[in-house]
Amino acid sequence: MSKRKTVIHSIKRIVKSPYMLLLPALLFYLLFWLLPVVMSIFQSFTTVDGTPTLQNFINMFNESRFMRALINTLVFAVVSLTLQFFLAILLALLINKKFKGSRLFLFFMIIPMALPQAAVGILWNTGLTEAGWLNSLFHVTGLQTVLESLGVLDGRTLWTNVTGTRAVMTIVLIDTWTVLPSVMIIILAGLQNFNRELSEAAQVFGASRGRAVKDIVIPIIKPSIVTALLLRLIAGLQVWLISVMIFGYGRVPYLLERVVYYMSVVARTDANYRMAVSYSVFTLFVILTVAFLFVRLTSGKTEWRKADE
């Protein structure tokens, strides 16, 4: 009798234990996250019948577009991050004032980031053709005439007539259009919070504005910036969709573009699936490595600064 009671009691205790609330999450991540990750790593190192092999990765390294895909991905991530970060800081410093309509301004700045990537693809697809809106804009604003008389342009620009790194840069610019405004408002928000402290500090120490920015502002707003940059970096390494919408598959390869290519463009054969899995595991590896390096690099500097103090 009492034994049964203790059994019931302990069941009750287990059911009522706070850990039970974590169980669904645990199950979820086991089934939908850990399992696929482990599975893809396993599959990338085995053949179809399960014997271990490195052949999948050898095939991947030998794939004609592998090197370009890797280089393009890294170039895109690094260049877009750097460009967006510095442009955003520059703009934020220039605009760092309270002005009439600043709320409305912030409102507009959020728009590009809210746009679904597929829509951004359509937007720039209509823009970059020879008779597209970008050339139209150049034309109606007179910019075309100015640039032509300076000898910079000769007739309408063929924006998509680019290959290699220049094609990557085209996508970097589109990405910058999408992301820059919101990077800027984050920095702006940080700046305006600390504006008063900045000017006080600058007055006290008699420092130049540039020095004050470097020594005071950046360290203060750094933590939130670092997280944001990390997220941007990870997102940058996942570029492919807009590029495919502008240039199509294969012309400007990226790592994930290759994954999608082997998963959904070519026939679904075992060989193609192994190729997709290998690319996908490799992409994951690249993302984790770069993210790790980034965290080490930034937190390392922070420690160094502390030690200096």
Partner: peptide
């Protein structure tokens, strides 16, 4: 640990697990 794990999955590139996910 749980908090950290939540942050890691937040940043995890979901598209790269979509390949094995198709089979699952």
């Amino acid at each position: 640990t749980i908090g950290l794990a939540a942050l890691v999955v937040r940043m995890f590139p979901i598209i790269s697990i979509s390949v094995p996910m198709a089979i699952l």
